[in-house]
Design a protein around this nucleic acid. Structure first.
Length: 829
RNA sequence: GCCGCAGUGGUGAAAUUGGUAGACACGCUAGACUUAGGAUCUAGUGCUUCGGCGUGGGGGUUCAAGUCCCUCCUGCGGCACCA
């Protein structure tokens, strides 16, 4: 029967109807484990081409490892808490839980089951289901027990469109990551996770991320951003305290002509309280109102002199023993100490600030050529110390160390490190999320919900709740009002829900024991299969999700639940699927819907196409000619192979003695391509894998033709055997037509459970080799010679060739280099 | 500004890690065949003045460089008033 992708799909569906071929027993001990994971989807109800790409990648890798004999885990689940469900509720008056449930059904049974993805659905999980979020709550309580979940009043990122607080990681260029609206700073009391306690571990762990996409490693580095420097104390006698300034350039200490603190710095409020001053007050108020975007866009320096003085640590030696304390919003409150020493001569920002406000400029690091002190701009290069008391004459690089040591001795400072990473704000003022298992009691304070009472379930939303602004746990009295677990008096539940990034920071663990209702997971299972061997997802998750995932892993490690401290061995960042050079979007009208593409071209062609031509890390541009070509390829191969197998139905496939196989070149091609294909799969060069399949097809189909004329009973049996192995290998990429042929003509139990053929090295040995003859490294001719040929013989043949004769004519042969069986290079002058 | 990645035919790209640059495809050209099919098959396809020349530019190391080193240019991504 001629190729018809629809009937092939129907057949494959019927093969897998009853059994879960892709099941793996995660409690089974053993060594040969492979965990292939693609980031789980938000159940929007519509799978898009991006999903097709990611899940095909994790699938091909999973199938490959299975063929190579590993126990493979390739699970799937739902990242189902979050805003779209609430927005749908408000718009269409559908309960968020029901809306989510509908979408999951739709995606699971109509979209994620049509592309041949080998998901083990036995491991399915859903972050918004109480048996999952019970353990998200448990994790919160563990954090709380460890002192890592805490409340504080702080300036937080407020998104007024989503009516919720956002984590720093969710603010991109000062705007909300979801809707792009400008984020405000609001002083609020909020739940935080003390991820900053893990800065060192997260930073040091970066060196272990050898198999991560380099871009993703770079994102991790930039985000945590460790900086080594010195903390220097400036006494403020009037207030009986000191300002700690962080700097990476302690060598410029003697050039300090002012001190600048951030408007949010605690001292600012103290100054206002003690020495009320309208100008200062107005400046502070105005600065606090400014959004991050305003601060970012307007880099014009602003500030105000408080008139408060502070003392230089070396006040007896330096030119400016006492300097003014300024408030300036170019100083960032939550980086370093929120205070900087202002050294205009050697810092571009301080220079601008000083120029604008007439602050003195004192050069302390001179250029080697001793240029004058009348600086046009800040001098930020290295040099020799001047105007710096006892440190004069030193190289400034040495002075950095010397001054830090000296400060430590006189107890006026110390070497320190600082990080850009901030504590993780985890509370969200939203309904559709995991409730924070805490209770506020007037007499006992904030009390954790006892573990036995978990999960704290979300109340069911009624139609009247589903109004804009009303869908909030505050408005559910039956949820809010409770008893204090300690004193049993009336108390109120916490009404914030958890950031959905917490839900997704531990799902990979839960897949290994998704039905456990006694504990979060069985450690044995997790230790057995993790770290994840192959984790596929977009680079956009390299900051938020991957930071949190690493943090939670390190936390669970420190609490003794797991024996590894990095969750992902290989993080593979796939590129986007675009069309016409743009991201697919409804408004642009350049959307290819996966279900439609698969219906039209068949899943084999779609899978093959989405992997072909371009490395999976890069963006691809969807082209109709490309997908059509893959359809044609699948059709051609199915038809040719089916015809061959039908003709030789009665011949039992038999490898036999391949050394008697008539076409040695075919065997050479076959096994060298097996070798290349294996490498492509090992190294995740899936586009090369597709090219290898093309190469296979090119010589196999030719050989099938040839066998019609010259085939013997023996050679047909061998060829049939080789075709069977080819189908198993190609089945990684095109699992539909290959499985049908394997079932119908070879009665295999399942494509998934085949094995990868071993490379027969003996057929890769050839009796002749091509030796390239070069003159001065430029190729002149090619000699096809016996592999064991001597150097003398090569030399004779080379010099006999007209190209060499012409090339050396009238020149001196200086040197001859022979690389056995490869290169013969003649050097002439 | 700092960090990371990349630059190869008309296009997507490959190159066993220093040893025949352009595998495998798309597109294009010519031809064949036609039971008009999502046709298929065959041949060709870096440039060339047929000597050669060619991997963003310039320099270097080497018998030999797309690959290593220096330098510059361009594009993409991340961070960014980070002290």
């Amino acid at each position: 029967m001629s190729y018809d992708h629809q009937s092939i799909k129907d057949k494959v569906d019927s093969f897998h109807k009853n059994a879960n071929d892709f099941y793996v027993d995660t409690s089974k001990e053993g060594k040969n484990k492979f965990y292939s994971l693609a980031m789980f989807p938000y159940p929007s109800g519509n799978a898009h081409m991006g999903h097709v790409r990611v899940y095909t990648l994790s699938d091909v890798k999973a199938r490959y490892k299975k063929l190579k004999g590993s126990d493979v885990l390739h699970p799937m689940g739902w990242d189902s808490f979050g805003l779209p469900a609430e927005n749908a509720a408000i718009k269409n008056k559908v309960r968020p839980d029901l809306w989510t449930e509908e979408n999951i059904k739709k995606m699971k049974y109509e979209q994620l089951n049509i592309a041949g993805w080998s998901f083990d659905w036995d491991k399915e999980l859903n972050t918004s289901s109480p048996d999952y979020y019970k353990w998200t709550q448990w994790l919160f309580l563990e954090m709380h027990k460890a002192g890592l979940a805490y409340r504080k009043e702080d300036y937080v990122n407020w998104c007024d469109v989503d009516k919720t607080v956002l984590a720093n990681e969710q603010v991109i260029n000062g705007c909300c990551w979801r809707d792009g609206s400008v984020v405000e700073k609001r002083l609020m009391e909020q739940w935080f996770f003390k991820i900053t306690d893990y800065c060192d571990k997260l930073w040091d762990g970066i060196s272990k991320l050898k198999n991560w996409a380099p871009e993703a490693v770079s994102v991790q580095k930039n985000w945590i951003n460790k900086n080594t420097g010195t903390e220097i104390h400036f006494d403020v006698p009037e207030f009986g305290e000191k300002i700690e300034a962080f700097t990476t350039r302690p060598d410029t200490l003697f050039g300090v002509t002012a001190l600048v603190i951030a408007p949010e710095h605690p001292l600012a409020q103290k100054i206002l309280a003690k020495k009320p001053n309208k100008e200062v007050e107005e400046y502070v108020t105005a600065s606090l109102k400014k959004s991050a975007v305003e601060r970012m866009q307007n880099k014009e320096k602003s500030g105000v002199n408080t008139g408060v003085k502070c003392r230089h640590p070396y006040d007896s030696e330096c030119k400016y023993p006492e300097v003014d304390v300024w408030i300036g919003d170019y100083v960032i409150a939550d980086y370093g100490t929120g205070a900087v020493m202002c050294v205009p001569a050697h810092d571009t920002r301080d220079f601008e600030f000083a120029k604008k406000f007439g602050i003195d400029i004192l050069e302390v690091v001179s250029q080697a050529n001793g240029k004058p002190t009348d600086l046009e701009e800040a001098y930020t290069e290295n040099g020799v110390m001047i105007n710096s008391g006892e440190f004069n004459g030193m190289k400034n690089r040495e002075a950095i160390k010397a001054i830090t040591e000296s400060l430590t001795k006189i107890n006026k400072g110390k070497g320190t490190t600082t990080y850009q990473l901030k504590d993780w704000s985890v509370g969200r003022q939203r309904y559709w999320g995991c409730p924070i298992p805490m209770i506020h009691c007037d007499s006992c304070g904030v009390v954790p919900v006892p573990e036995a009472d978990l999960p704290v379930k979300l109340p069911e939303a009624k139609d009247s709740d589903m109004e804009d602004g009303a869908l909030n746990l505050r408005n559910f009295p039956e949820f809010v009002n409770t008893k204090c677990p300690k004193c049993h008096n009336d108390a109120k539940r916490e009404t914030d829900t958890l950031d959905t990034f917490l839900c997704s920071s531990w799902y990979a663990f839960r897949y290994l024991d998704n039905r456990n209702d006694e504990k979060i997971f069985e450690s044995k299972n997790v230790n057995n299969f993790m770290p994840i061997d192959f984790y596929v997802g977009g680079l956009e998750h390299a900051a938020q999700h991957m930071i949190y995932f690493r943090f939670i892993t390190k936390f669970l490690h420190d609490r003794g639940y797991i024996n590894f401290d990095e969750p992902v061995d290989h993080f593979f960042c796939n590129g986007m699927v675009r069309m016409g050079g743009h991201k697919m979007s409804k408004s642009r009208g350049n959307v290819v819907v996966p279900t439609e593409a698969i219906e039209k071209h068949g899943a084999d062609a779609v899978r093959m196409y989405i992997l072909s031509d371009t490395p999976a890390e890069l963006d691809i541009d969807w082209e109709d000619t490309g997908i059509k070509a893959k359809y044609d390829f699948v059709k051609k191969n199915y038809n040719a192979i089916e015809a061959f197998l039908t003709e030789h139905k009665d011949v039992k496939e038999d490898k036999g003695d391949l050394s008697k196989y008539p076409n040695k070149e075919f065997l050479f091609n076959y096994y060298s391509t097996v070798k290349e294909y294996e490498q492509s799969m090992e190294q995740n060069l899936f586009h090369k894998g597709v090219a290898n399949i093309h190469a296979f097809s090119n010589f196999i189909l030719k050989e099938l033709q040839q066998s019609k004329k010259e085939g013997t009973a023996e050679s047909i049996a061998s060829l049939k055997f080789l075709v069977k192995d080819f189908l198993s290998m190609a089945g990684l990429i095109t699992p539909f037509f290959t499985e049908v042929l394997l079932k119908e003509f070879f009665a295999v139990e399942s494509l998934y459970k085949q094995s990868f053929p071993a490379v027969e090295e003996k057929f890769l040995v050839q009796s002749t080799v091509n030796v390239v003859v070069q003159i001065n490294g430029k190729k002149k001719t090619l000699l096809n010679v016996d592999k064991e040929i001597t150097e003398e013989e090569v030399e004779r043949l080379a010099f006999e060739s007209p190209e060499v004769t012409r090339g050396v004519d009238g020149k001196n042969v200086v040197k001859k280099i022979y690389v056995k069986g490869k290169i013969y290079n003649i050097v002439v002058k």
